[in-house]
Each structure stands twice: as C-alpha cells, then as structure tokens.
Amino acid sequence: MENIGFALEGAWQVLLIGLLLGAGLPAVFALGIRSLAYGAGGAAETVDAGHAPPHPVGRLGAAVCFAVVLAGVALGITIVVASGFGKEVSFDHVVPSLVDK
C-alpha cells in the first residue's frame, strides 16, 4: 500500500501550493478591490455612509494588487502551455523559468 504514502505526500504539496495560489491570490485581488473602493470614496464604501472623500493613493494600491494577481494568472497559463510543449516551469531558482521536462 505504498500508494497511500505517495498520495498523502502529493496531497500535502497540492494543499500547500493550492492555499498559496488559490486562496492567496484571491485575497490579494480582494485587497485590490478594497483599495479601489478606498480610492473611489463616496458610495463605494459603507463606512461614513457615502461621505468618504476619494483617496488617489487607493488607486495606486489597487493597481499593484491587480498586477500581482495578473502575474499569478500568467504563471498559471504558462505552466499549462509549457507542459503541452514538453517543458515545465521550474522554481528551483525562486524566479520561475522554463526548462525541458
């Protein structure tokens, strides 16, 4: 029953990376939305009942958050496409790079 060992090992890794990307990136996206609302002010926020002034810095924060999310998605697509062409994305040097399988 070596299979159970292999499966648990795989499951553990998938859970960890899944949490990082599958819950982490949406959280960053949510931060972007929060920041955008802060930037827009007015009726976008429920606090101060529609009288909050706009904060331009909020838009900047939102842009950064959305950029991080887009980078994550781009990485995901690269992994899919690369594996189709017999390559894989390596994280050996922290920065993702394409290598042959």
Binding site: A23, P26, I33, R34, E45, T46
Partner: peptide, 23 residues
Amino acid sequence: IAVAAVGTWLIHRITEGVAERYR
C-alpha cells in the same frame, strides 16, 4: 474545500466595509 473556504473567508474579511454593489 479547504482552499476555497480559506479563500472565501479571507476575501470577506478583507472587503468588509466595501459597498455591496461595488464589491
């Protein structure tokens, strides 16, 4: 279930205070 539950919880915590329609 674990990943989605954590993600949902985080999203709702972070966007508290954002108007529903905007969100």
